[in-house]
Design a protein around this nucleic acid. Structure first.
Length: 464
DNA sequence: CCATCTGGCCAC
DNA sequence: AAACGTGGCCAGATGG
């Protein structure tokens, strides 16, 4: 496989190159024996359909995606990098002059000492209030720094400066530098690896480099997507499932409230807020909608009142978060029942199953440790929903690959990002490919609620 | 020097 | 061990 590391740079965790030739026959025999045993295990575990209908057909699709790679505008990367490095240099100076002793802003350990040590300790610190602990000491993560930055008792500029420093350092180190280093100079393209066996739920993962976590949330971060550019004469076509996990929640639970909202094409967070806070949809405030959105996310991840309260922010107590959850469960009885059934199911069988019958063992379900068991319960819910969404898009990818090959042989699938597919198509075909992509994704499964797919085209990833 | 762990943070 | 799920990568720290 073409790889960013090139030949000769082998990693410690790779097996040594095989001395194949003299042993070829023996190797083939061993390989066949192992394959037979693997397949018989897959059969006895009831995973034959997932294996033969999804995973095996997906192999050549992923292989083509890896070999296709994606074109990178290295000048764009370099330009952004220069800009951010100038800002980082300034921030380093400002941080140095605001700090009582020379410290490395890339070191959470040193920062923790600087912020939280007592003034008379060694090394001396600012004696700020510790609000969160890690296994080794006081946390300096962004949540903590944001609170410190707003705290009127904290007279230091450091929390704010470090937050900004970390943001830019992340973008330069993890993306601008690393992506440039991953470009094959001969082709100007990056070829990541996609892994079919890397996750517990059936999702894919991506590595070297990971192209499934390119920034989008902030403006400076999203700008990195400008460096992903379609090949000469080609255009990017992208499509993503809207609210796919909540739609699976509606499908499995058959909850009338949620199903109707999706059937009518309503703004789902607004619809849920209207129910939970017992107001008309038009009367839902931004704050209520945002709270409902967090509850929706929470349900999919396996909610706790504690976690919800933290995410809702300082205006909400755990008690208020509990009330909101109670109201949610009362208004959406079907969802409540589904959550309970998922947990009961996992307790009985020891595993969680997705829509295709893919299953994940959850040994924590029977643990004596309550925290461990609670984790198992969240996993039981999340796996059904997340894993089913993974099944859906894999089926769409297999069909899309066939259809593109038949109708637009020059178009090719480049990336999958969990609920999104990115295709590169000849510019003249882009609109037709967009329709094909969108319809293939939408038609990959028939659920009790309609699937909605939004799509776009553009020469750069940032344009979509 | 290398391998591994940790805290932190990017995506869905 | 799990205080809301799934991943991968970075720099620093640690230890052989």
């Amino acid at each position: 496989m073409i790889g960013a590391r090139g030949l000769g740079q082998r990693r410690f965790d790779e097996a040594p190159l095989s001395l194949a030739a003299p042993y070829a026959a023996e190797d083939a025999e061993i390989t066949l024996a192992l394959a037979n045993r693997l397949e018989s295990t897959i059969r006895t575990r009831g995973q034959w359909n997932v294996y033969s209908e999804i995973e095996i057909p997906l192999v050549p699709v992923l292989s083509r995606m890896e070999r296709a790679g994606i074109r990178i505008d290295r000048d764009e990367l370099a330009m952004q990098r220069r800009g951010l490095e100038v800002r980082l240099a300034k921030l380093r100076q400002e941080i140095a002059s605001a700090a009582p002793w020379p410290f490395n802003p890339d070191s959470p350990k040193q920062l923790s000492q600087l912020l939280f040590n007592a003034p008379d300790a060694q090394p001396p610190g600012l004696g700020l209030r510790v609000m969160k602990r890690t296994t080794t000491g006081a946390s300096t993560d962004s949540e903590v720094l944001e609170k410190l930055a707003e705290d009127p008792n904290c007279h230091s500029q450091l929390p704010e400066q470090i937050l900004e420093y970390r943001q830019f350092a992340k973008l330069v180190g993890t993306y601008l530098k690393a992506l440039d280093a991953a470009v094959l100079p001969e082709t100007g393209r990056i070829h990541c690896s996609f892994h079919q066996t890397g996750t517990a739920t059936g999702r894919l993962s991506s590595s070297e480099p990971n192209l499934q976590n390119i920034p989008i949330r902030t403006e400076v971060g999203a700008a990195i997507r400008r460096a992903f550019i379609a090949d000469e004469g080609m255009t990017f076509v992208s499509a993503d499932y809207s609210q796919i996990e909540l739609r699976f929640l509606a499908h499995f639970s058959q909850d009338p409230g949620l199903c109707d909202a999706f059937a009518r094409g309503e703004d789902i967070h607004r619809a849920v807020a209207a129910q939970v806070f017992a107001v008309a949809p038009d009367a839902v405030t931004d704050v209520q909608r945002s709270a409902a959105k967090m509850v929706n996310f929470g349900i999919v991840y396996g909610i706790t009142a504690n976690g919800l309260a933290r995410r809702l922010g300082s205006g909400y107590t755990i008690g208020r978060a509990k009330e909101i959850m109670e109201s949610y469960r009362a208004r959406f009885r079907g969802i409540d029942a589904f959550l309970r059934e998922s947990v009961e199911d996992a307790k009985r069988t020891g595993h969680a199953s997705t829509i295709t019958g893919r299953w994940r063992p959850i040994p924590q379900m029977h643990s004596r440790n309550p925290a461990e068991r609670a984790f198992g319960e969240r996993v039981a819910v999340n796996t059904v929903v997340q894993g089913s969404a993974a099944d859906l898009i894999k089926i769409a990818m297999i069909r899309l690959d066939q259809r593109l090959h038949a109708r637009f042989p020059r178009a090719r699938l480049l990336l999958q990002i969990h609920d999104e597919l990115l295709v590169e198509a000849p510019t003249a075909d882009a609109e037709e490919v967009r329709t094909l992509l969108s319809e293939t994704m939408r038609g990959a499964m028939e659920l009790r609620v309609p699937l909605e797919v939004s799509s776009a085209t553009g020469r750069r990833w940032s344009d979509i």
